[in-house]
Design a protein around this nucleic acid. Structure first.
Lengths: 215, 215
DNA sequence: ACCTGAACACCGTTCAAGT
DNA sequence: ACCTGAACACCGTTCAAGT
């Protein structure tokens, strides 16, 4: 729609696009104002006119990425299955945008990552029979669990392989009684499986019986 | 024990102590090699001789702080109560060292925060009757849940109060059906209560019946 | 309204030179 | 063995000056 020849002036849109590209390639710490200017072929100071400063540039990128995340559609027959499916979808979406997670953490905006699944979760939790504050707690518990899990996962991934001393721990009493446990803990973690296990347990605990309103 | 007059030479110990003090006061991002040198009254380059570089300095601080965390003693009568108590102790310990959390995340060493509670959790989960890979999964699920929760909490705390647009979400269908839910979600989160709720649900789901070995 | 270069106040790190 | 200053290659941001 917009002829390429008319780009006489730099544009907020162009700045955001170039910034997005930089972040996509090398993560948010590679997004420096000077590299960005070089990429755009302008003076560093021009960028400041369009986006204020680095902080608000990152904010804009976060907002944009969150808006692009796409909807979440629950699957499954029971409410429990459907909430679990929402959790897994949210995790998958966040993992598909690893730079979002990094940016959000650098900027302290974790809340933003809660949004995509929120309405759906409210609906499903309501369908499961939870009401009022109890329902709100359940929604938040699932959200924090998913986002927290993704943060830990991402962190583990960029850590060097080193986990020295872990094995020594399993030479203790308990491990001798249960060598299978010792071996299982020595093996590397399968994050996908661990997530499924924990989220199933959490949701079952949140929605299951024995959790009726405190009478 | 060590006379103060004999400090002719700078010391790795002194560097670590000064670095710890700096981090304690203003967080890890305030720990710059130059400020550290100024604090110690030496040239910046001397520090490099003792600790290599900033990265390994942070690693050393992390290691030291983790070692100082102190033991965790479960309380309660049922295995479920005891695992929950371990989770809450671990969370409290991590929250008492907010800079550890920040440093660990900056350095990608989240694993380190798993250690303090690990043996205790293994023991309690074993006492609850879980064995082998199933027990290992339970231990890890609790660890990730706690650490993830603390990461999200810390993030929320350093974020500005802004959560714009949240309220609009609750004007939807579901909220109209359940005004108490809408109000609950509009209220600020009580992290302590939310943690307790979620960890109880998780542990109950992990240890509860209906989770017997897949027959 | 938008762009520019110069300048300020910072960084981490290396290295040759000192004792 | 330990310390030093100078230097390199970076940062984000401000500001006066241009068109």
């Amino acid at each position: 729609m917009k002829s390429e020849e008319t780009r006489t002036h730099l544009n907020r849109e162009q700045v955001l696009a170039a910034a997005t590209a930089l972040v996509k390639q090398h993560g948010p710490q590679a997004l420096t104002m000077r590299k960005l200017a070089a990429e755009l072929g302008t003076a560093v100071t021009s960028i400041y006119w369009h986006v204020g400063n680095r902080e608000s540039l990152l904010d804009a990128l976060v907002e944009r990425t969150v808006a692009d995340l796409g909807e979440i559609h629950p699957t499954g027959h029971t409410p429990e299955q459907r909430v679990v499916s929402v959790a897994r979808s949210l995790r998958r979406q966040l993992r598909e945008h690893p730079h979002l997670v990094a940016m959000v953490h650098e900027r302290g905006l974790t809340e933003r990552m809660f949004l995509p699944a929120q309405q759906v979760l409210v609906h499903e939790v309501h369908a499961a029979g939870l009401r009022g504050a109890r329902a709100a707690d359940a929604v938040r518990a699932v959200q924090v669990h998913v986002v927290g899990h993704v943060l830990v996962e991402r962190n583990r991934e960029r850590a060097p392989v080193q986990r020295p001393g872990e094995e020594e721990l399993w030479s203790g009493r308990t491990a001798e009684q249960d060598p299978a446990l010792a071996r299982a803990l020595a093996r590397p973690v399968d994050p996908e499986a661990l997530f499924t296990t924990s989220v199933r347990a959490l949701v079952s605990g949140l929605l299951g019986r024995g959790n009726g309103p405190g009478t």
